[in-house]
């Protein structure tokens, strides 16, 4: 079953009235439930832009040609309002960023609690969930530390705890290991893989690191605003290497 399916996804940024950048030039993508997918490609090829659309941070452009479609577990979310997209982000998505993006004034647990709060989980239940999430990333003893008191690797683990505290169906990670040394990278990757295996969370991660890419079930390769290679889905791989979708 596909958890994310997109067709005709385009995004054009307006720099000025005449100057525009076509970051996505019509992407078709399909991500299966429980998959751990890497998106790779040269800088500027549209990986982050695609992630923002898959993560409902941005809506795809309403095209002049064929209308964009984006299905989240079968529900068309291509044309939802900002408010509805926000609700889905809060409850069904988790985000991890390259530069951690923790709120600097809040402690580790408060950062995690934010995500609970936005998903409508409050009080004791939230506290329990937040502590559990911090425990899963091995930072229960750092719950009351501010981000500035934590190392990069620790900060990223707090961010992962925040991303998965609501047990979202999908975790989207944009270069989560980009600012970490290889040892910390391996830790973070192992964590993501663990949640993928144990909780069946779908993970989409953008990376430059081919080692990280290789550790995933599938690598989607982008170039110049298009998907060049969809890679082989795990199930397909197991079946002997039939590609799930034709290369663009």
């Amino acid at each position: 079953m596909e958890i994310l399916e997109g067709r005709n996804l385009r995004k054009t940024y307006k720099l000025s009235r005449k100057n525009t950048v076509e970051a996505l030039k019509g992407v078709e993508i399909s991500i299966g439930q429980g998959e751990m997918v890497a998106i790779m490609g040269p800088s500027g090829s549209g990986k982050s832009t695609l992630m923002h659309i898959l993560g409902l941070l941005h809506a795809p452009d309403p095209n002049h040609g064929p209308a964009p479609e984006l299905f989240l577990a079968g529900q068309n979310v291509a044309a939802l309002s900002d408010n509805d997209r926000t609700k889905l982000r809060a409850r069904r998505m988790g985000f991890v960023f390259q530069d951690f993006n923790l709120v600097p004034t809040l402690t580790a647990i408060e950062n995690v609690l934010l995500a609970c709060d936005y998903a409508g989980i409050k009080g004791g239940a939230a506290k329990t969930a937040a502590l559990e999430a911090l425990g899963l990333v091995g930072l229960a003893d750092r719950a009351n530390h501010k981000p500035s008191e934590l190392s990069g690797g620790e900060q990223q683990r707090v961010a992962i705890a925040r991303a998965l505290v609501n047990k979202p169906e999908i975790i989207l990670a944009d270069e989560p290991t980009g600012n970490l040394d290889s040892e910390r990278s391996a830790e973070v990757l192992a964590l993501l893989r663990q949640f993928n295996r144990e909780h069946g969370q779908t993970i989409v991660l953008v990376t430059h690191d081919s080692e990280v890419g290789e550790a995933c079930d599938r690598i989607i390769r982008m170039r110049d605003g298009r998907i060049r290679d969809h890679g082989l889905q795990a199930s397909a791989r197991a079946l002997g290497g039939q590609p799930v979708a034709a290369s663009a």
Binding site: L57, D82, N83, T86, K87, R89, A90, R91, M93, G94, F95, N101, L102, V103, P104, T105, L114, A115, Y118, A119, R162, A163
Partner: peptide
């Protein structure tokens, strides 16, 4: 600004 971006990204509504 950045903090607001983080909060919006992880699900804070405009109203929040």
């Amino acid at each position: 600004t950045r903090e607001i971006g983080i909060k919006r990204a992880i699900g804070a509504s405009r109203w929040r």
